[in-house]
Design a protein around this nucleic acid. Sequence first.
DNA 1: ATCGGCTCGCGCAA
DNA 2: TGCGCGAAGCCGAT
Length: 445
Amino acid sequence: MVHPGRITHNNVGTEKDGPIVYWMSRDQRSSDNWALIHSIELANQKSTYVLVVFCLDLSYPSVISRSLNFMIEGLKEVEKNLVSKKIPFILLQGDPTHQLPPFLAHHNASTLVTDFDPLRIKRQWKESISRQVTIPVITVDAHNIVPCQVASTKQEFGAYTIRPKINKLLADYIQDFPEIEEQKAPEESITKPINWPEIPNINNCIPSITWIKPGEHAANIALRYFIEHKLEGYATKRNLPELEWTSNLSPYFHFGQIAPHRVALEIIKANATAVDKDAFLEEMIVRRELSDNYCFYNPNYDTVEGLPAWAKTTLDLHRSDEREHLYTLDAFEHAHTHDKLWNAAQKEMVHTGKMHGYLRMYWAKKILEWTVSPEEAFSIAIFLNDKYSLDGRDPNGYTGIAWAIGGLHDRAWFERPVYGKIRYMNSNGAQRKFNVEEYISKNSF
DNA sequence: ATCGGCTCGCGCAA
DNA sequence: TGCGCGAAGCCGAT
Protein backbone atom coordinates (compact mmCIF):
# COMPACT_ATOMS: atom_id res chain seq x y z
CA MET A 1 0.00 0.00 0.00
CA VAL A 2 1.19 3.48 -0.79
CA HIS A 3 2.29 5.30 2.37
CA PRO A 4 -0.49 7.77 3.25
CA GLY A 5 2.18 10.43 3.81
CA ARG A 6 2.83 10.50 0.06
CA ILE A 7 -0.72 11.52 -0.69
CA THR A 8 -2.12 15.05 -0.65
CA HIS A 9 -5.75 15.89 -1.36
CA ASN A 10 -5.84 19.09 -3.37
CA ASN A 11 -9.55 19.74 -3.17
CA VAL A 12 -12.77 18.34 -1.79
CA GLY A 13 -14.50 16.79 -4.75
CA THR A 14 -17.22 14.34 -5.64
CA GLU A 15 -16.25 11.14 -7.40
CA LYS A 16 -17.93 10.15 -10.62
CA ASP A 17 -18.42 6.66 -12.10
CA GLY A 18 -15.66 6.53 -14.71
CA PRO A 19 -12.01 5.51 -14.48
CA ILE A 20 -9.27 6.84 -12.21
CA VAL A 21 -7.18 9.14 -14.38
CA TYR A 22 -3.48 9.39 -13.61
CA TRP A 23 -2.09 12.56 -15.17
CA MET A 24 1.55 11.56 -15.55
CA SER A 25 3.80 14.60 -15.50
CA ARG A 26 7.07 14.54 -13.58
CA ASP A 27 7.35 10.80 -13.08
CA GLN A 28 7.44 9.41 -16.59
CA ARG A 29 7.76 5.71 -15.88
CA SER A 30 5.56 2.63 -15.67
CA SER A 31 7.32 0.86 -12.81
CA ASP A 32 8.29 2.01 -9.32
CA ASN A 33 5.81 4.86 -9.58
CA TRP A 34 3.81 5.53 -6.41
CA ALA A 35 1.35 7.76 -8.26
CA LEU A 36 0.48 4.97 -10.68
CA ILE A 37 0.41 2.41 -7.86
CA HIS A 38 -1.97 4.57 -5.86
CA SER A 39 -4.17 5.08 -8.92
CA ILE A 40 -4.44 1.30 -9.29
CA GLU A 41 -5.29 0.95 -5.59
CA LEU A 42 -8.08 3.50 -5.97
CA ALA A 43 -9.35 1.79 -9.11
CA ASN A 44 -9.44 -1.57 -7.35
CA GLN A 45 -11.35 -0.09 -4.42
CA LYS A 46 -13.93 1.38 -6.77
CA SER A 47 -14.03 -1.54 -9.20
CA THR A 48 -13.01 0.64 -12.08
CA TYR A 49 -9.83 0.94 -14.13
CA VAL A 50 -6.90 3.33 -14.51
CA LEU A 51 -6.32 5.51 -17.51
CA VAL A 52 -2.95 7.24 -17.79
CA VAL A 53 -2.69 10.51 -19.67
CA PHE A 54 0.29 12.66 -20.58
CA CYS A 55 -0.15 16.22 -21.77
CA LEU A 56 2.54 17.41 -24.16
CA ASP A 57 2.78 21.17 -24.29
CA LEU A 58 5.19 22.17 -27.03
CA SER A 59 5.04 25.78 -25.88
CA TYR A 60 6.48 24.84 -22.47
CA PRO A 61 9.12 27.42 -21.53
CA SER A 62 12.56 26.84 -23.04
CA VAL A 63 11.50 23.60 -24.66
CA ILE A 64 14.24 22.43 -26.98
CA SER A 65 14.52 19.49 -29.29
CA ARG A 66 17.32 17.91 -27.25
CA SER A 67 15.26 17.52 -24.07
CA LEU A 68 12.06 16.90 -25.96
CA ASN A 69 13.50 13.97 -27.88
CA PHE A 70 14.82 12.44 -24.68
CA MET A 71 11.42 12.83 -23.06
CA ILE A 72 9.35 11.55 -25.98
CA GLU A 73 11.53 8.50 -26.55
CA GLY A 74 11.03 7.73 -22.86
CA LEU A 75 7.28 8.18 -23.16
CA LYS A 76 7.10 5.81 -26.12
CA GLU A 77 8.54 3.14 -23.86
CA VAL A 78 6.03 4.06 -21.13
CA GLU A 79 3.26 3.59 -23.67
CA LYS A 80 4.57 0.14 -24.61
CA ASN A 81 4.98 -0.94 -20.98
CA LEU A 82 1.57 0.32 -19.88
CA VAL A 83 -0.27 -1.24 -22.78
CA SER A 84 1.42 -4.57 -22.02
CA LYS A 85 -0.20 -4.31 -18.57
CA LYS A 86 -3.53 -3.47 -20.22
CA ILE A 87 -3.41 0.09 -18.92
CA PRO A 88 -4.56 2.64 -21.50
CA PHE A 89 -2.13 5.50 -22.15
CA ILE A 90 -3.34 8.60 -23.92
CA LEU A 91 -1.42 11.58 -25.26
CA LEU A 92 -2.98 15.03 -25.16
CA GLN A 93 -1.34 18.02 -26.82
CA GLY A 94 -1.52 21.62 -25.70
CA ASP A 95 -1.88 23.52 -22.46
CA PRO A 96 -2.94 21.03 -19.75
CA THR A 97 -5.27 23.57 -18.16
CA HIS A 98 -7.25 23.60 -21.42
CA GLN A 99 -6.85 19.94 -22.36
CA LEU A 100 -7.44 18.06 -19.13
CA PRO A 101 -10.80 19.34 -17.83
CA PRO A 102 -12.74 18.42 -21.00
CA PHE A 103 -10.84 15.13 -21.18
CA LEU A 104 -11.87 14.27 -17.62
CA ALA A 105 -15.46 15.21 -18.35
CA HIS A 106 -15.50 13.16 -21.55
CA HIS A 107 -14.34 10.05 -19.68
CA ASN A 108 -16.55 10.78 -16.68
CA ALA A 109 -13.35 10.41 -14.63
CA SER A 110 -13.82 9.42 -11.02
CA THR A 111 -10.69 10.97 -9.56
CA LEU A 112 -7.64 12.77 -10.92
CA VAL A 113 -4.30 11.60 -9.58
CA THR A 114 -1.04 13.34 -10.44
CA ASP A 115 2.57 13.31 -9.30
CA PHE A 116 4.29 15.90 -7.09
CA ASP A 117 6.31 18.72 -8.62
CA PRO A 118 7.49 21.82 -6.73
CA LEU A 119 7.98 24.00 -9.80
CA ARG A 120 5.81 27.05 -10.41
CA ILE A 121 4.28 26.16 -13.75
CA LYS A 122 3.32 22.64 -12.70
CA ARG A 123 1.65 23.97 -9.57
CA GLN A 124 -0.23 26.61 -11.54
CA TRP A 125 -1.46 23.96 -13.95
CA LYS A 126 -2.66 21.77 -11.10
CA GLU A 127 -4.35 24.65 -9.27
CA SER A 128 -6.13 25.78 -12.40
CA ILE A 129 -7.35 22.27 -13.18
CA SER A 130 -8.46 21.73 -9.57
CA ARG A 131 -10.58 24.87 -9.81
CA GLN A 132 -12.15 23.72 -13.07
CA VAL A 133 -13.24 20.25 -12.00
CA THR A 134 -15.59 18.90 -9.32
CA ILE A 135 -13.92 15.52 -8.86
CA PRO A 136 -11.19 14.89 -6.24
CA VAL A 137 -7.65 15.86 -7.28
CA ILE A 138 -4.89 13.96 -5.52
CA THR A 139 -1.12 14.47 -5.58
CA VAL A 140 1.25 11.60 -4.87
CA ASP A 141 4.91 12.36 -4.21
CA ALA A 142 6.51 9.74 -6.43
CA HIS A 143 9.80 11.60 -6.80
CA ASN A 144 11.11 11.96 -3.26
CA ILE A 145 11.79 9.06 -0.95
CA VAL A 146 10.59 11.03 2.06
CA PRO A 147 7.79 13.16 0.59
CA CYS A 148 8.68 16.83 0.35
CA GLN A 149 5.91 18.09 2.59
CA VAL A 150 6.49 15.34 5.15
CA ALA A 151 10.25 15.86 5.42
CA SER A 152 9.66 19.48 6.38
CA THR A 153 6.84 21.99 6.52
CA LYS A 154 9.09 24.99 5.88
CA GLN A 155 12.03 26.16 3.83
CA GLU A 156 15.11 24.56 5.34
CA PHE A 157 18.19 26.58 6.12
CA GLY A 158 20.72 24.05 4.90
CA ALA A 159 21.51 20.41 4.30
CA TYR A 160 22.36 20.09 7.98
CA THR A 161 18.86 21.10 9.04
CA ILE A 162 16.97 18.83 6.63
CA ARG A 163 19.32 15.83 6.97
CA PRO A 164 18.18 14.66 10.43
CA LYS A 165 14.55 15.14 9.44
CA ILE A 166 14.93 12.98 6.34
CA ASN A 167 17.06 10.35 8.08
CA LYS A 168 14.53 10.01 10.88
CA LEU A 169 11.74 9.22 8.39
CA LEU A 170 13.72 7.25 5.83
CA ALA A 171 13.07 3.80 7.31
CA ASP A 172 9.30 4.50 7.29
CA TYR A 173 9.26 5.41 3.64
CA ILE A 174 11.91 3.32 1.93
CA GLN A 175 9.73 0.29 1.30
CA ASP A 176 9.87 -2.08 -1.67
CA PHE A 177 7.73 -1.34 -4.69
CA PRO A 178 4.98 -3.78 -5.62
CA GLU A 179 4.96 -5.23 -9.14
CA ILE A 180 2.16 -3.92 -11.29
CA GLU A 181 -0.20 -6.71 -12.28
CA GLU A 182 -2.09 -6.89 -15.52
CA GLN A 183 -5.16 -4.68 -15.31
CA LYS A 184 -8.67 -5.21 -16.58
CA ALA A 185 -9.39 -2.09 -18.56
CA PRO A 186 -12.25 -2.49 -21.04
CA GLU A 187 -11.03 -3.48 -24.53
CA GLU A 188 -12.29 -0.30 -26.15
CA SER A 189 -10.31 1.87 -23.70
CA ILE A 190 -7.01 0.55 -25.10
CA THR A 191 -6.88 2.80 -28.09
CA LYS A 192 -4.73 2.47 -31.15
CA PRO A 193 -1.04 3.32 -30.80
CA ILE A 194 -0.20 6.94 -30.20
CA ASN A 195 0.79 8.91 -33.24
CA TRP A 196 3.77 10.69 -31.70
CA PRO A 197 4.45 14.16 -33.09
CA GLU A 198 7.58 14.92 -35.03
CA ILE A 199 9.69 17.32 -33.03
CA PRO A 200 10.56 20.36 -35.08
CA ASN A 201 14.30 20.86 -34.95
CA ILE A 202 14.10 24.54 -34.11
CA ASN A 203 17.49 24.54 -32.40
CA ASN A 204 19.51 22.73 -35.01
CA CYS A 205 22.65 24.47 -33.81
CA ILE A 206 22.49 22.30 -30.69
CA PRO A 207 24.51 19.12 -31.18
CA SER A 208 22.45 15.96 -30.78
CA ILE A 209 23.36 13.53 -28.03
CA THR A 210 24.17 9.88 -28.53
CA TRP A 211 26.12 8.89 -25.40
CA ILE A 212 22.99 8.42 -23.31
CA LYS A 213 19.87 6.48 -24.26
CA PRO A 214 16.48 7.65 -22.97
CA GLY A 215 13.86 5.55 -21.22
CA GLU A 216 13.19 3.29 -18.26
CA HIS A 217 15.12 0.34 -19.63
CA ALA A 218 18.21 2.40 -20.41
CA ALA A 219 17.98 4.02 -16.98
CA ASN A 220 18.11 0.64 -15.30
CA ILE A 221 21.07 -0.40 -17.43
CA ALA A 222 22.84 2.84 -16.44
CA LEU A 223 22.13 2.09 -12.79
CA ARG A 224 23.56 -1.45 -13.11
CA TYR A 225 26.63 -0.07 -14.88
CA PHE A 226 27.17 2.52 -12.16
CA ILE A 227 26.86 -0.03 -9.36
CA GLU A 228 29.18 -2.49 -11.05
CA HIS A 229 31.85 -0.08 -12.25
CA LYS A 230 31.76 3.22 -10.40
CA LEU A 231 30.22 2.81 -6.98
CA GLU A 232 33.46 1.45 -5.57
CA GLY A 233 35.66 4.51 -5.13
CA TYR A 234 32.81 6.93 -5.73
CA ALA A 235 33.49 8.92 -2.55
CA THR A 236 36.83 10.18 -3.84
CA LYS A 237 36.70 9.75 -7.61
CA ARG A 238 33.44 11.63 -8.13
CA ASN A 239 35.36 14.83 -7.39
CA LEU A 240 37.82 14.28 -10.22
CA PRO A 241 36.02 15.61 -13.29
CA GLU A 242 38.58 14.23 -15.74
CA LEU A 243 37.64 10.67 -14.67
CA GLU A 244 33.91 11.04 -15.43
CA TRP A 245 33.26 8.98 -12.31
CA THR A 246 29.63 9.97 -11.96
CA SER A 247 26.39 8.02 -12.13
CA ASN A 248 24.93 9.87 -15.14
CA LEU A 249 21.50 9.19 -13.66
CA SER A 250 20.49 12.83 -13.41
CA PRO A 251 18.64 13.07 -16.77
CA TYR A 252 16.68 9.95 -15.87
CA PHE A 253 15.78 11.44 -12.50
CA HIS A 254 14.72 14.69 -14.11
CA PHE A 255 12.26 13.02 -16.48
CA GLY A 256 11.24 10.47 -13.88
CA GLN A 257 12.47 7.61 -16.05
CA ILE A 258 13.90 5.97 -12.91
CA ALA A 259 12.85 6.50 -9.30
CA PRO A 260 15.51 7.73 -6.86
CA HIS A 261 13.71 5.42 -4.47
CA ARG A 262 14.55 2.42 -6.70
CA VAL A 263 18.16 3.58 -7.00
CA ALA A 264 18.42 3.86 -3.22
CA LEU A 265 17.12 0.31 -2.77
CA GLU A 266 19.67 -1.03 -5.25
CA ILE A 267 22.58 0.98 -3.82
CA ILE A 268 21.80 -0.22 -0.30
CA LYS A 269 21.81 -3.82 -1.52
CA ALA A 270 24.99 -3.34 -3.57
CA ASN A 271 28.36 -4.71 -2.67
CA ALA A 272 30.48 -1.63 -1.93
CA THR A 273 32.01 0.14 1.05
CA ALA A 274 29.81 2.21 3.33
CA VAL A 275 31.86 5.33 2.57
CA ASP A 276 31.07 5.09 -1.15
CA LYS A 277 27.41 4.23 -0.68
CA ASP A 278 26.94 7.03 1.86
CA ALA A 279 28.58 9.59 -0.41
CA PHE A 280 26.19 8.70 -3.22
CA LEU A 281 23.08 8.43 -1.04
CA GLU A 282 23.83 11.80 0.60
CA GLU A 283 23.81 13.46 -2.82
CA MET A 284 20.86 11.55 -4.19
CA ILE A 285 18.65 11.81 -1.14
CA VAL A 286 19.56 14.70 1.17
CA ARG A 287 20.78 17.23 -1.38
CA ARG A 288 18.27 16.34 -4.06
CA GLU A 289 15.35 16.49 -1.64
CA LEU A 290 16.70 19.78 -0.27
CA SER A 291 16.28 21.18 -3.79
CA ASP A 292 12.63 20.18 -3.85
CA ASN A 293 12.25 21.74 -0.40
CA TYR A 294 13.70 25.05 -1.62
CA CYS A 295 11.57 25.26 -4.76
CA PHE A 296 8.41 24.14 -3.00
CA TYR A 297 8.65 26.62 -0.11
CA ASN A 298 10.30 29.56 -1.88
CA PRO A 299 8.29 30.97 -4.78
CA ASN A 300 11.33 33.00 -5.89
CA TYR A 301 13.54 29.95 -6.34
CA ASP A 302 14.87 31.14 -9.69
CA THR A 303 15.73 34.75 -8.88
CA VAL A 304 17.95 36.75 -6.52
CA GLU A 305 14.75 37.63 -4.65
CA GLY A 306 14.63 34.15 -3.11
CA LEU A 307 18.11 34.29 -1.57
CA PRO A 308 18.81 34.55 2.17
CA ALA A 309 18.88 38.10 3.58
CA TRP A 310 22.62 38.16 4.37
CA ALA A 311 23.40 37.14 0.78
CA LYS A 312 21.18 39.80 -0.80
CA THR A 313 22.72 42.44 1.49
CA THR A 314 26.28 41.52 0.65
CA LEU A 315 25.61 41.24 -3.10
CA ASP A 316 23.95 44.67 -2.97
CA LEU A 317 26.95 46.22 -1.25
CA HIS A 318 29.18 45.03 -4.07
CA ARG A 319 26.95 46.01 -7.00
CA SER A 320 29.21 48.79 -8.17
CA ASP A 321 32.49 46.90 -7.72
CA GLU A 322 34.60 46.93 -10.83
CA ARG A 323 34.43 43.70 -12.85
CA GLU A 324 37.72 42.56 -14.32
CA HIS A 325 35.89 40.86 -17.21
CA LEU A 326 32.40 41.42 -18.57
CA TYR A 327 30.75 39.06 -21.02
CA THR A 328 27.44 39.04 -22.84
CA LEU A 329 25.12 36.05 -22.93
CA ASP A 330 26.40 35.40 -26.44
CA ALA A 331 30.03 35.25 -25.31
CA PHE A 332 29.16 32.88 -22.48
CA GLU A 333 27.01 30.73 -24.72
CA HIS A 334 29.77 30.33 -27.31
CA ALA A 335 32.42 29.71 -24.66
CA HIS A 336 34.34 32.83 -25.64
CA THR A 337 35.78 33.83 -22.28
CA HIS A 338 39.46 34.24 -21.39
CA ASP A 339 39.21 31.22 -19.06
CA LYS A 340 39.97 27.83 -20.65
CA LEU A 341 38.51 25.89 -17.76
CA TRP A 342 35.27 27.85 -17.86
CA ASN A 343 35.04 27.43 -21.62
CA ALA A 344 35.62 23.69 -21.31
CA ALA A 345 32.79 23.39 -18.78
CA GLN A 346 30.46 25.34 -21.06
CA LYS A 347 31.44 23.16 -24.03
CA GLU A 348 30.91 20.02 -22.01
CA MET A 349 27.34 21.17 -21.36
CA VAL A 350 26.67 22.25 -24.94
CA HIS A 351 28.03 19.09 -26.51
CA THR A 352 27.02 16.44 -23.98
CA GLY A 353 24.01 17.90 -22.15
CA LYS A 354 25.70 17.56 -18.76
CA MET A 355 28.36 19.25 -16.65
CA HIS A 356 30.39 17.78 -13.84
CA GLY A 357 29.20 18.82 -10.38
CA TYR A 358 32.38 20.62 -9.32
CA LEU A 359 32.39 22.63 -12.52
CA ARG A 360 28.73 23.57 -12.18
CA MET A 361 29.75 25.48 -9.05
CA TYR A 362 32.76 27.09 -10.65
CA TRP A 363 30.84 27.86 -13.86
CA ALA A 364 27.99 29.65 -12.09
CA LYS A 365 30.26 31.59 -9.72
CA LYS A 366 32.28 32.94 -12.64
CA ILE A 367 29.11 34.11 -14.35
CA LEU A 368 28.44 36.14 -11.20
CA GLU A 369 31.98 37.52 -11.37
CA TRP A 370 31.80 38.47 -15.06
CA THR A 371 28.38 40.10 -15.39
CA VAL A 372 27.09 43.53 -14.40
CA SER A 373 24.68 42.31 -11.73
CA PRO A 374 23.67 39.24 -9.73
CA GLU A 375 20.27 39.39 -11.44
CA GLU A 376 21.85 39.11 -14.87
CA ALA A 377 24.17 36.34 -13.68
CA PHE A 378 21.21 34.40 -12.31
CA SER A 379 19.20 34.67 -15.49
CA ILE A 380 22.13 33.79 -17.77
CA ALA A 381 23.04 30.74 -15.70
CA ILE A 382 19.46 29.49 -15.66
CA PHE A 383 18.95 30.19 -19.34
CA LEU A 384 22.05 28.25 -20.38
CA ASN A 385 21.44 25.37 -17.99
CA ASP A 386 17.80 25.03 -19.04
CA LYS A 387 18.74 25.19 -22.70
CA TYR A 388 21.61 22.74 -22.83
CA SER A 389 21.45 20.40 -19.85
CA LEU A 390 19.38 17.26 -20.16
CA ASP A 391 18.56 17.78 -16.50
CA GLY A 392 17.68 21.46 -16.99
CA ARG A 393 14.41 22.98 -15.72
CA ASP A 394 14.84 20.93 -12.56
CA PRO A 395 14.77 22.00 -8.90
CA ASN A 396 18.36 20.77 -8.67
CA GLY A 397 19.47 23.26 -11.29
CA TYR A 398 17.71 26.24 -9.74
CA THR A 399 18.92 25.36 -6.26
CA GLY A 400 22.47 24.74 -7.43
CA ILE A 401 22.61 28.10 -9.16
CA ALA A 402 21.17 29.81 -6.07
CA TRP A 403 23.86 28.10 -4.00
CA ALA A 404 26.70 29.17 -6.28
CA ILE A 405 25.61 32.72 -7.07
CA GLY A 406 23.59 33.51 -3.99
CA GLY A 407 24.95 31.63 -0.98
CA LEU A 408 21.78 29.58 -0.55
CA HIS A 409 22.23 26.76 2.00
CA ASP A 410 25.77 28.04 2.48
CA ARG A 411 27.53 30.31 4.98
CA ALA A 412 29.20 33.64 4.59
CA TRP A 413 32.90 33.72 3.78
CA PHE A 414 35.73 36.20 3.64
CA GLU A 415 34.56 39.34 1.89
CA ARG A 416 35.98 40.14 -1.54
CA PRO A 417 35.06 42.22 -4.61
CA VAL A 418 31.86 41.41 -6.53
CA TYR A 419 31.14 38.25 -4.51
CA GLY A 420 30.90 40.04 -1.19
CA LYS A 421 30.62 37.26 1.37
CA ILE A 422 29.45 34.63 -1.12
CA ARG A 423 31.88 31.71 -1.22
CA TYR A 424 34.55 32.33 -3.81
CA MET A 425 36.09 29.81 -6.16
CA ASN A 426 38.94 30.14 -8.61
CA SER A 427 40.93 27.96 -10.96
CA ASN A 428 43.79 27.60 -8.44
CA GLY A 429 41.43 25.50 -6.37
CA ALA A 430 40.60 23.39 -9.40
CA GLN A 431 44.33 22.95 -10.16
CA ARG A 432 44.91 21.72 -6.63
CA LYS A 433 42.03 19.27 -6.74
CA PHE A 434 42.07 17.61 -10.14
CA ASN A 435 43.77 17.36 -13.52
CA VAL A 436 42.51 20.54 -15.15
CA GLU A 437 44.45 20.05 -18.38
CA GLU A 438 42.99 16.61 -18.93
CA TYR A 439 39.47 17.86 -18.30
CA ILE A 440 39.99 20.71 -20.76
CA SER A 441 41.38 18.45 -23.47
CA LYS A 442 38.49 16.02 -23.02
CA ASN A 443 36.09 18.88 -23.61
CA SER A 444 37.79 20.71 -26.45
CA PHE A 445 34.99 20.24 -28.95
C1' DA B 1 50.76 18.77 3.63
C1' DT B 2 48.02 20.81 7.22
C1' DC B 3 45.79 24.27 9.99
C1' DG B 4 43.23 28.28 11.37
C1' DG B 5 40.76 32.36 10.20
C1' DC B 6 37.37 34.37 7.53
C1' DT B 7 31.69 35.04 8.64
C1' DC B 8 26.32 34.32 9.40
C1' DG B 9 22.51 32.30 11.58
C1' DC B 10 19.87 28.08 12.83
C1' DG B 11 18.78 24.95 16.30
C1' DC B 12 19.60 22.92 20.46
C1' DA B 13 21.27 22.95 25.21
C1' DA B 14 21.19 25.31 29.30
C1' DT C 1 21.84 33.36 26.00
C1' DG C 2 25.63 30.70 24.44
C1' DC C 3 27.64 27.73 21.40
C1' DG C 4 28.65 24.30 17.68
C1' DC C 5 28.80 23.88 13.19
C1' DG C 6 27.46 23.97 8.36
C1' DA C 7 26.44 21.75 0.17
C1' DA C 8 31.56 21.07 -2.19
C1' DG C 9 36.90 27.23 -0.44
C1' DC C 10 40.73 30.39 -0.31
C1' DC C 11 44.88 32.01 1.56
C1' DG C 12 48.78 32.59 4.20
C1' DA C 13 51.48 30.72 7.95
C1' DT C 14 53.80 26.83 9.59
